Simulated scan of single mutants.
Amino acid sequence: MKTIFIAIAIIFTHVSLFAQHSLEKLWQTDTVLTTPESALLAANGQFLYVSNIGSAQKERSGYISKVAPGGKIITREWVTGLNAPKGLGLYKGLLYAAELTAVAVIDVKTGTIVRRIPIEGAQMLNDITIDAKGVVYVSDSKANKIHKIENGRPSLYLENMDNANGLLAVGPALYALTNGKLLKIDAQKNPTIIAEGLEGRTDGLVQVRENEFIVSGWQGIIYYVKADGTKQVLLDTRDQKSNTADIGYNAVAQTLYVPTFFKNTIVAYRLK
């Protein structure tokens, strides 16, 4: 009998280690957004901030929207006058948005831009993450760099980061997406490759549980990635030419929010 119980335990352990995940579509917004690039859950969890790049032909046509769970647009143009905003980060009532060459700082209570922090030599700022101490990290995909902003002062953090994009601060570590790779960077700036061979111009990065992540590729592919390097394709919309840009995640509802870029929508999926 004891042998049987041990065998059953081994089977369940094996199944759990290799359990497959999936995404169930919940809702989709109307196509009223303008090149949505990033989705970020508000601090109270009641709505999403969505960055809209705007028109490529018109400077400062970008804006931030508010979108409710269920896909209703609360405020389409909540903050306007932004220069191709992409990654978003929240810290103590301030929303940080990566513009092309500066980081805009927005007061979430008033919806006003309180300051801009220029990044010297920036070519195309992309994603943002903020650690528990309020240090802001921002990637520059064209310049292959990661910058940090501490106490309002920007400085170069890392260079030679091939097409640096998605960033995620977890404790003392910084996770970063480069060209097809997920890296873990320790406090001494030493990078370790967590996973590689990720297709689709790696873009968005969220943590769903300890040592487990979801990674999006801009061209339309989403992966479930574990810290041991294993990966599973959750979604592939490349044939439909539907992009999967800088994703957001609601851990309580286990819901993934996907900006579709040129399709001008946000699509929500439940992680199963």
Rank of each mutant, 00 (worst) to 15 (best):
K133A: 14
P154Y: 09
V114I: 14
L95Y: 09
I106L: 02
D107T: 13
D127W: 02
A98P: 11
Y96K: 01
H147F: 12
L95D: 05
Y137T: 10
A98F: 05
V136G: 12
L100K: 11
D131V: 12
Q123P: 03
V105Q: 02
M124L: 13
T129V: 09
S139L: 12
L100S: 13
M124S: 11
G152A: 11
L94N: 04
T112K: 03
K133H: 14
Y137P: 11
V135E: 07
T112W: 02
G121D: 03
I106K: 01
N144H: 15
M124I: 04
V105P: 11
S139K: 15
V136D: 02
G121W: 02
V108Q: 00
P118R: 00
A102Y: 06
I146T: 12
G121L: 13
P154E: 01
T110I: 04
A97I: 04
R116H: 04
K145N: 11
I106N: 03
Y96N: 00
G152Y: 06
I146S: 14
L94Q: 04
I128S: 04
V136Y: 04
T101Y: 00
V135T: 15
T101F: 02
V105F: 01
I128N: 07
Q123H: 13
R153F: 14
D127M: 03
K145I: 02
A98T: 12
Q123V: 08
N151T: 05
D107H: 11
N144C: 09
A104P: 11
E150A: 15
Q123T: 08
K109N: 14
E150P: 08
V103S: 09
I113R: 01
S141M: 11
K133I: 03
V105K: 02
P118Y: 00
D140Y: 15
I128P: 08
V114M: 02
D107M: 07
G121P: 13
D127R: 05
K133E: 15
P154G: 10
K148L: 09
T112D: 09
A143C: 00
V135L: 09
Y137A: 09
D127K: 04
V136M: 09
I128C: 01
A102E: 14
K142C: 01
I146W: 14
N144G: 10
K133R: 06
V138Y: 05
I113E: 11
N144L: 00
I106T: 06
V135G: 10
G121H: 08
V138M: 06
V114A: 03
A104F: 00
P118A: 07
